[in-house]
Write a protein that binds this DNA or RNA. Structure first.
Lengths: 114, 114
DNA sequence: GTACTTTGATCCGATAACCGATCATCGAGA
DNA sequence: TCTCGATGATCGGTTATCGGATCAAAGTAC
């Protein structure tokens, strides 16, 4: 639930509800209702304000659980963070794909060890 | 702008505005206003309904351009796809992190070649 | 040709989103 | 001890969201 995610992130950042609301330029009363999931349909602009202060993207707040044709499309946030970090480090897509092929090969090898 | 993105994706899927609205269970009048950016603050649930029909995640609709302390936080969709593929292939985070350290080491080596 | 259907745009209103003010409680400082 | 400020929760009101109805134009079938 979106409210819970906001609350956890806020606490992770050591922000009070009041502080987050002030910084985001939103009403703390509404934020309180959202965090407790008493209100569940905030607007995109409201969420963007919060995301900005919490230094995450909106997707993180709403949860990556979009279903596409019954197939779960969520990608664990940790993987996204890893990819992001990789980009900042300077890894190219080619290097990554090379690595992926290597792992596939390794797995294949494991499988055919007998 | 969010409305433009929705429109483009909808046309890509060969859906009429009416059809998308019907499938998403939303009012086509509001969708029309949104697509033309006459209204710019839809709710998260409204967007999730659209995203589901268009088979994208909400982030795609709103644009991955969240700025975090002046640093662009968008992550190229291709990288996300690579990460996703990696997960399906069975790569563990530990393996990936190992690889990352290796690349960092390689880059460091390159740098200190002289 | 006419009749019907579909499209996206326009209009108006109900209601939930979101606000500011207030409240009860707690903690810190004098 | 008392006072003040901060916290998160509660309350009532404004207004923008989002809905349904309608419209004008285009397309299709007979």
């Amino acid at each position: 639930m979106i409210g819970y995610r906001i609350k956890v992130l806020r606490q992770k950042r050591r922000l009070s509800l009041t502080e987050l609301a002030d910084r985001a330029g939103i009403a703390k009363s509404y934020l309180s209702y959202i965090e407790r999931n008493l209100q569940k349909n905030p607007s995109i602009q409201f969420l963007e304000k919060i995301a900005l202060v919490l230094e995450v993207d909106v997707e993180t707040l709403i949860g990556e659980e979009t279903m596409v044709k019954g197939v779960k499309q969520d990608l664990e946030q940790e993987w996204i963070d890893l990819a992001r970090k990789a980009v900042l480090t300077g890894i190219t897509k080619e290097e990554f794909q090379e690595f992926q092929r290597f792992v596939e090969y390794t797995n294949w090898k494991k499988k055919h060890k007998t």
